[in-house]
Amino acid sequence: MSTRYTIKQSGESRSFPKGDAFLAGASKDDADVIIHLGTPLAAAPDKAAVLIELGTESLGTHTGEKEGEEGGNVLGFARYRNGDDAPSQLIELVCQPRTAESAIAAARAVFEAAGFTVVVCSDQAGRIIDRLVRPKYNVALRFLDEGLATAADMDLTCRLGLGYPDGPIERVTRGGLAHHHDVTQALFETYGTATYAPARRAVVAAARRKK
């Protein structure tokens, strides 16, 4: 399977910041996989796959939806990145109910050839990681407010007790509390459950953000 890809870019990509090797690896000519980084989706039904980088929005925002029958050769993706941290090696590939298996395979081949780990998820808010980890950061921030433990002790507990490389407070703080606010706000708008509502400390950080 071909692992060549063409990039169409406008502005900086969160997945592949300036200087990222993946940008340099793109073909100059019209490859069989098209990757949109900030450029509007253009239908290309003859391509193996068309990929569009997602922020907090659904893939359906770009493709439109058809009562659960949506899907073709267009996939969403995001390289997981904790706010301002360097991007991870994980690519979350977003599918719709009728996304073609061949398109998934083509997208996977491109990213795996570039050294990424690929997981496939459905088009739901927060994909896999943000959906799972943001409520945990919210709770840790609330625990801090409520005096359950110091930030250092909460982080140490997760490192020593669970073997995490870092604890929830240090990680969410390093990634940016204002970023956490934006991600949880988007999740909250979709799911409406209190667990996604931005924690007070994230609300504070967003309010104090330099415009």
């Binding site: 997981y80 904790n82 991870s88 090696q89 994980l90 979350e92 780990t117 997981v119 496939v120 998820c121 459905s122 739901q124 994909r127 896999i128 990681i129 959906r131 799972l132 980890v133 669970l162 073997g163 995490y164 490389p165 870092d166 990680r171």
Partner: peptide, 25 residues
Amino acid sequence: RAVEAGVASPADIDKAIKVGLGYKM
């Protein structure tokens, strides 16, 4: 609940958490 909601397979959820967040399990 994410498995139940069809977000991804158990293997992909675990893989995402391990590679994305560096958890051992």
